[in-house]
């Protein structure tokens, strides 16, 4: 995206509180979690941008005291061949954000994986279950405080 287009984007999203950054050449929008659905709808439907494809959505555990978790969304515009990142910073104790499945349907599995691995809850998700780990598993393995070898006897094995 060139400078001109980024300015146009800033103009269209001026009613929201957004920090603009540059992630090695790709524009990155740090969005408040309350606004993420409205921003997403504008990005998807606006003819000048048309970010119609959700490439990826994943979590990050920064392991800091405040705003420990982040969710990063990677978007692609098939019409303009543009790429953009959305970053949502989440609370340490209560990492909850609204779901993006209403805007991009393909966010479904990505959000389930993020919930499974980081324990980030997506409000309004149609099927908020674990996707990889067994459903009776109690931990979130990609959190920094989870030991690599797992927690003994947290996963069942069949009897010999």
């Amino acid at each position: 995206m060139n400078e001109e287009k980024i300015n146009l984007l800033k103009d269209k999203l001026k009613s929201f509180e957004i920090e603009y950054a540059d992630a090695t050449g790709t524009p990155q929008l740090v969005v408040k979690k309350e606004n993420v659905v409205s921003v997403g709808e504008i990005l998807k439907s606006d003819e000048d941008f048309k970010f119609d494809m959700l490439i990826d959505e994943f979590g990050v555990d920064k392991f800091t005291k405040n705003e420990r978790f982040e969710v990063i969304v990677s978007l692609w515009s098939e019409k303009h061949k543009d790429r953009i990142f959305l970053k949502i910073k989440l609370d340490t104790k209560n990492p909850v954000m609204p779901t993006l499945t209403g805007v991009w349907k393909s966010a479904n599995f990505n959000e389930r994986e993020t919930y499974d691995m980081f324990g980030i809850i997506f409000e309004g998700h149609p099927d908020m279950r674990r996707i990889y780990m067994p459903e009776n598993f109690e931990y979130h393995p990609l959190r920094k405080d989870f030991p690599l070898m797992g927690i003994p006897s947290s996963l069942d094995l069949p009897k010999k």
Binding site: M133, P141, F146, L148, M149, G150, L155, L157, K159, K160
Partner: peptide
């Protein structure tokens, strides 16, 4: 695969 999801040897549940 020395990590949490992989069984560290199937002799834990099979003869």
């Amino acid at each position: 695969y020395r990590s949490y999801p992989v069984v560290q040897g199937i002799d834990q549940f099979l003869p």
